[in-house]
Design a protein around this nucleic acid. Structure first.
Lengths: 143, 143
DNA sequence: CTCCCAGTTGCAAATCTTCGCATCTGCATA
DNA sequence: TATGCAGATGCGAAGATTTGCAACTGGGAG
């Protein structure tokens, strides 16, 4: 059903249970390029396994996020969206509060912050998915 | 009713309407040290003006956050919480995903990230309230 | 001081997300 | 391969947050 052997191995190694529902949610998110709302994930899961419940989808989205396998995107005024976290393509988002443009930031852009936190607080920042707000170049120039 | 003249002036200067409901929400948040859930804000607002609706409280919390006057805290598994953004005491939060400890980060800790984003993307990071996840010193040491 | 209207509000209903609980099942172990 | 049980699921209901809309109002223009 899934073509994500590596990820599934990773899950097994972490000692978590791999239920068909969980695999399906993972599969749906990983087969999409964009950002899906929980409801959209549910729709697609439901199309393949109609008995799967929406709450199970939610629970698995939370679970997979905690495992670091999916990232979530909380944009102003719309439901939370999820996306795959692909090895080697980890990234964060910077959202322009003025025009809504979104740019992707490389994980490396956070490395100095990571170092700062470790240095000053002994805090190990997780490479979790972040969404930062601000003004994009164009809007900043216009202002 | 309120003792936040400066902030109110700031709002008027920004050309926004200052309704009693809005002033009350602002007042409640600024008269609390901790982090209040929307519901707690509503309770306190309601105690003073019983006719104010919960949705108005929500709308004003969103509005005041957009104005940068309050910050929000989204902690795993609990409703969103809000807190005052006090001039000179802007800060962010770092949450330990293991023990739940929360430490406050100074705005200055983000300055290098801010510089990086401006430099690499021309993106002007807003000093908005952030919550970062990771491991605190103690938990990291234990692991 | 009065008028006007864009922005707000209260209310009710929709939407989104989480939870409790009885039942079920992946998978480690024997 | 059969068994046990911690963790997952489905379902119903609750909780959290947002929205549509008609009525109302803060505060600038006249």
């Amino acid at each position: 059903m899934s073509c994500h052997g590596t990820i599934i191995d990773q899950l097994r190694a972490a000692g978590v249970r791999l239920t068909p529902q969980r695999a399906l949610v993972l599969d749906v998110v990983y087969h999409t390029d964009g950002h899906l709302t929980a409801d959209q994930v549910y729709e697609r899961v439901h199309a393949q396994s109609p008995q799967v419940d929406l709450s199970t989808v939610y629970r698995n989205l939370v679970f997979l996020r905690q495992q670091g396998l999916i990232g979530e995107l909380r944009l102003e005024g719309q439901p939370v969206r999820f996306e795959a976290v692909r090895a080697g393509r980890e990234h964060h988002h910077a959202l322009c509060t003025h025009c809504g443009a979104m740019l992707e930031l490389a994980q490396a852009d956070l490395s100095s912050l990571q170092a700062t936190l470790l240095d000053r607080y002994g805090f190990h920042l997780e490479p979790v998915h972040l969404t930062l707000s601000g003004l994009c170049q164009a809007c900043a120039a216009a202002a």
